[in-house]
Amino acid sequence: MWERNHTKVKDFILHGLSINGHTQTAIFTLFLGVYILTLVGNVTIIMLVWCNTSLHKPMYIFLVNLSFVEIWYTTTTVPKMLSGFLSENNYISFTGCFLQYYFLFSLGATECFLLTIMGYDRYLAICQPLRYHVLMSSRVCFCLAASCWINGFFWSSVPITIVSQLPFCGENEINHFLCDTGPLLELSCTRDLVTEVTSSVITSLVLLITFFFICISYIFIIQTTVRIPSSSGRRKAFSTCASHLTVVIMYFGGAMYIYIRPSGKHPLYLDKAVAVLYTTVTPLLNPVIYSLRNKEFIDAMKKVMKQLYRI
């Protein structure tokens, strides 16, 4: 019936960030710079680990996977957001919108699983040091990394599929800079409670389950750390986890605010600001946090710089 009375939506218009003309050029330049630095920073991490055999350890293998996720995670949203600054109407096709939606959630879920595995790796390194190389062998490391990617892309296929089957007609303007669950559900011609609950539950489970296991890992890590007799030993143990814990707080904090909260009206400007935080800022800070707080990484960087200087 609705197909006869309404025109089926073929594309959407992303409103993006509400910025006046005087500051639009400056904001565009800022986000372009952040995007370029994100790519450079994460590619640098991948190349450093790849070229230095001293960094061929599970901790850095997982970090390489995280950097690879961050490159594509930010690429999923930022280029389209930047194009919105250059055009009056930032169109995105129906297929393109749901492809962005799918990769945004798949890569986000993959990051959740990777951060969980990285927490488990730190737990083994601190709480089971004598058995670490057995429990976290190269084969186990590879299997865990692969499982993060498989689970991330499989888990996210369910909510994206059911939301894409909803009828979209009439209104096609999304007051956001990306295709997300909330804005898309608001544009649907019919309200489907089952779809809303299912997509919300699946997204919440990914965040809550992974965050729960990260918390469990750190409970054991803290218990082991406080038993270390020397203060220098405690500082060294904690320093190996500080970078990971910082990233976890930033990423999960923003994601949980958006996807795990009571239903109702929420300030749109705050939703956009938080979305910018976990889609744009966090991918930039991750390589900075891990490189500046890691002595092995700094030494590897110095080694590469000396080799380049000799050339």
Rank of each mutant, 00 (worst) to 15 (best):
V276I: 13
T210N: 15
M47H: 00
R293W: 10
F211W: 12
T203R: 15
F252C: 08
D299E: 12
P58D: 01
F212A: 12
S231M: 14
L270N: 07
F105H: 07
I117M: 14
P267G: 06
Y120G: 03
F94G: 04
I45T: 05
R191S: 13
S93V: 08
V78I: 12
S93R: 08
S83A: 11
C143E: 15
M81H: 07
V163W: 02
T280M: 13
A125F: 07
K236H: 15
F31T: 14
T181D: 11
L185K: 04
K10V: 12
K80A: 08
T74L: 04
S232A: 14
P58S: 01
N42A: 00
I160Q: 07
L187D: 07
C169D: 09
L115Y: 07
S138G: 05
L55T: 03
L208V: 13
L144G: 01
N42I: 02
F177W: 03
S87F: 12
V248A: 11
A145W: 01
V201Q: 10
V64E: 05
I162C: 05
T23K: 09
L115S: 05
Y269C: 10
L166C: 05
S164K: 08
P262D: 07
D121G: 06
L205E: 11
E186Q: 10
P159A: 01
H6W: 15
I202P: 04
I117Q: 12
A275C: 10
D192W: 02
L124M: 15
T225Y: 09
L185D: 01
V288Q: 06
I214Y: 01
C179S: 04
